[in-house]
């Protein structure tokens, strides 16, 4: 008999071991001898059967959560490829948080590591996963109150700002925002989250995937009145917001962006001011707390 700590370690290892193609435990891979020495059988179930109930619950619960969180990625990859990816991911990165909300956090970098498997689609899959993760996170991140002149004080250009947690900035090589909105229409996204796509929606999904074309876009994924939205932003605005987030002062960030030749025709003092007012009103930016 093992100590409580060892028993829990061994039990969890059994749950985390990949199931076979029929979603059954593979006792040979996890040390069936341990199960028999620790778990009592009864008249209806062997010791392995009993552990298998927990193992299946473990895998199905986490798979379901990833299906729910990444329907767009699933549509892009197709059912089989997506399932292969997330099963490998679950095996490689077991949950390190009390909530499954955080479980997909390491999925985008994991996709990049699997680059060889996806070849030229690697960036597309990575960006889709990152965008869906951003949607999940901004949904319940802290919201900052609108930034006012009072917050900025007498020397606003010296203030250091940051992007609020309920806003995520993204530079994408594909118009994934529009693509996802199309996917949402006609119930495709809902069915993707729930599990099985019917034949009509499957072909609609395939057509959507086939139509996706490269296009550089700058996007803010943000929450407004408890709903998550996409908002396209100008390249210079993206650069300005990114500069804020890097801790550069307001004045220096504006100067950095306005000095760039590529933004010469697009940006003016007036456009910066208009944007700044809009971001402040929506709580996108807040004062960076000074380190004491």
């Amino acid at each position: 008999m093992s100590s409580l700590a060892q028993l829990q370690k061994d039990f969890l290892s059994c749950l985390q071991a990949p199931l076979n193609s029929k979603d059954r435990l593979q006792p040979s891979r996890i040390g069936g001898r341990w199960i028999k020495s620790e778990i009592k059988p009864n008249s209806r179930l062997t010791a392995v059967d009993r552990i298998e109930i927990y193992a299946r619950q473990y895998w199905f619960r986490i798979l379901e959560s990833l299906y729910d969180d990444f329907p767009g990625l699933r549509a892009l990859m197709g059912d089989q490829e997506f399932e292969r990816l997330i099963r490998r991911y679950i095996e490689k990165f077991p949950s390190r948080s009390y909530t499954l909300r955080d479980f997909g956090t390491r999925l985008p970098p994991f996709i990049l590591k699997e680059k060889r498997a996806y070849k030229d689609k690697s960036a597309l899959f990575y960006q889709m996963a990152t965008m869906e993760l951003a949607q999940l996170h901004v949904y319940d991140e802290k919201e900052e109150s609108p930034l006012t002149a009072k917050h900025l004080g007498a020397r606003p250009l010296l203030c250091r700002l940051r992007i609020s947690p309920h806003v995520r900035l993204m530079a994408l090589d594909y118009p994934l925002d529009e693509w996802q909105l199309k996917l949402n229409q006609g119930g495709v996204r809902e069915q993707l989250s729930n599990g099985v796509l019917d034949r009509r929606l499957k072909s609609k999904c395939r057509a959507l995937v086939g139509a996706i074309k490269k296009e550089r876009i700058y996007l803010a994924v943000h929450r407004y009145q408890f709903k998550v939205y996409f908002k396209r932003i100008e390249p210079w605005a993206f650069e300005l917001l990114t500069a804020f987030d890097q801790g550069i002062s307001l004045g220096a960030a504006i100067e950095k962006v306005m000095k760039q030749n590529k933004f010469k025709d697009a940006v003016s003092a007036a456009s910066v001011q208009t944007q700044f007012q809009e971001w402040s009103a929506m709580g996108w930016i807040s004062l960076r707390k000074s380190k004491k």
Binding site: S3, L4, A5, L7, Q8, K9, F11, L12, L15, Y54, Q57, Y58, R61, I62, P94, S95, R96, S97, Y98, L100
Partner: peptide
């Protein structure tokens, strides 16, 4: 119940052995 080992979570309510050691813990 138990459900985590060294910061890794099972997201399940797993059964305990009914021992004095487990009760004390």
């Amino acid at each position: 119940c138990w459900g985590s080992v060294d910061g890794t979570y099972s997201h399940d309510l797993l059964p305990l052995p009914y021992t004095l050691d487990a009760a004390k813990n």
